[in-house]
Each structure stands twice: as C-alpha cells, then as structure tokens.
Amino acid sequence: MLSITFFTALALYLVACFYNCLAFIRHLESMFRASLIFSIAGICFHTVHIIITGMERGIFPLTGRQEAMLFLAWALALSFIFIGFRYRVIALGVFMLPLVLLSMLSSLLFQESPVQDILRSRLFYFHTTFLFLSYAAFVAGTVFAVLYLLQERELKSRNLRLFYERLPSLDKLDQLFSNSMLSGLVLMTSGLASGIYWAHREWEGGWISDPKVISAIVTWLIYLALTSIRAVTGWRGKRMALITLAGFVSLLLTFWIATLLGSRHIF
C-alpha cells in the first residue's frame, strides 16, 4: 500500500531523525523540539495512512507482515513522542527514530496479504494493539538499559567525554527503564489475555502449542521475572541489562522467527 501519506510520513520521520541526532551531538534543546514537532507531523500522516488503508480494505489493517511492520513503526513513533514530551530524553530518539524508519522501509519488502475471515473480530483490535504497544515499550526500555550502561561505564571509568553531558543521570535512566518495562508488561499481559480469550472462542484446540504463543509466553515470563527481581533486590545496571537482553532476544524471536516455524499467526 504505497501512497503519498506513507512517503510524507517517512520523509517527516527522516527529518525528525536528523534533527534528533543533531540535538544529541550538539546538545541542543531547540533541535530536539524541532525533532518532536516533525515526529508529530509524521505520526499524523502515518495515522491517516493506516486509517485510509483500513477503510479501503474494510478491516483493521494488520493482516500481514507488510502492515505489521507499518504498525510497529507507528507504535515506536508513538512511544518516542510520548516519552520525549514527558521526559525530554534526547538520546532516546537516536535509537528509536532510526528503528521507526527501518521498520517503515522494511514494510516495503512484503506483499499485501489477503484478508482472512477469522480476523473480522473485535478482539483482533485489542490483541494486536496491546501487543504492538508493549513491543514499543520494551524497545524503549531496552534503549534505556543501553543508555544506563553507557553512562555508568563513563562514570565508573572517570573518563567523562562522550555521554556524560548528553545523557540523563543514572537515577533518571533507571526510573525510565523500570517505567517502560512495567508499562510494557501491563500492555503485554492485556494483549496476551485478549489473545487467549479470542483463541479459546474461535480457535479449535491446540493454540497452546503454537510456536508464537509459546515464544510470547516465554517473553512474558522473562519480563515478569525482570520486574519482580528488580522490585525485590533493587538490581540495576549490568545485571538488569543481561535480563533485558534476554527479554529482547526472546521478543525478536516471538515477533520474527516464530511465524516461520509454522505458526497460525500470519505475523
């Protein structure tokens, strides 16, 4: 589904990404504001594009890989804008906006998929939207874990050159990390719950052995463990980063690989 709205959104995100990188390198708040404004303009066109596609096809436009990548980009952009507005972390966009662009561009690699009747369910809306938003939250959390490690390494080595000024304090990064992970977990729980309910109603038996379902539950367990361990032991920094990494790998497996192993999920 190539259209003028798609390319306008893509171009706006590209400009936003450029400004964000400039803001990060030069340490300029004004450039960051520009980046946020362009991202908002971008997500407006992006939303319009999704709505138009949905209306044309007469279904929530998440019927295949192409639309999935596009929706993932939308969720990532949304989380960048939300966190950027609230917490003004310039460094987040340096990772998130390229991911938005990458995700949008990769949607060009896939063909439009046919509409399956089973998807004409209200539960489909909830199931996918919750899960995609949780992916975006987990990606943001992973970025914060990386930023924490970078800042921690610089403070520990007492060589304060690259990141010291450009990154927020360890405390703030830790807070953002745990907030993102927690909201990711809540969103994922809602997404999985609605999915299970839906499968229970319309999917005759065997849904539990679907590779994507197993993988998703493993991911969910990892993130559940991460949040609980944090609450109990107060772990932060390197130890948290390891679990975050495990969670992220599992997330990628769920999103990408599981469907290739003969899942009933189309994406």
């Binding site: 403070l155 927020p168 304090s169 360890l170």
Partner: peptide
C-alpha cells in the same frame, strides 16, 4: 555535578 549525574535529585 557528578552527584547530580548519578542521583538526579
């Protein structure tokens, strides 16, 4: 300044 980079507040 260093303390602020660790603790924020």
């Amino acid at each position: 300044e260093l303390a602020r980079k660790i603790f924020e507040d």
